[in-house]
């Protein structure tokens, strides 16, 4: 049985903001299905009593003093922007 359908792939692509071609959708459906079947081997293990590890270091919150420091200048920040206007990043219309 398939773990993932083309419809799932379309839904996930939407969440990930990725435009995929029809060919890509077909290919990813097949490949992701194969990968998900492989990772299913994790279910061989009983992990009811195991705590998850999100990070290896025993770090809690790392605080610093709330001091004002120099940041990247506006001009330098905008240097790489694909489109800009009057010191701002320019984007297509957000609100219809």
């Amino acid at each position: 049985m398939s773990k993932i359908t083309k419809k799932d792939v379309e839904y996930v692509a939407k969440l990930a903001r990725l435009k995929l071609s029809e060919k890509e959708k077909e290919k990813f459906t097949k490949q992701l299905d194969q990968i998900l079947k492989y990772v299913d081997k994790l279910n061989e293990l009983d992990t009811k009593k195991v705590k998850p590890t999100s990070h290896v270091l025993p770090l809690k919150n790392v605080f610093r003093e709330d001091k004002i420091k120099k940041s990247l200048e506006v001009e330098k920040t905008l240097e790489n922007a694909p489109e800009k206007a009057r010191g701002f990043f320019k984007v297509p219309k957000v609100i219809e």
Partner: peptide, 29 residues
């Protein structure tokens, strides 16, 4: 793209526990 898709899927509602959380637990092991 393939990895963004796989990662987004593993984190998405309904699959988080089965994939992401499960993997974090096996990471502990």
């Amino acid at each position: 793209k393939r990895r963004i898709m796989l990662g987004t899927y593993a984190l998405s509602a309904g699959y988080y526990d089965a994939y992401y959380l499960k993997a974090q637990k096996v990471r502990t092991l």
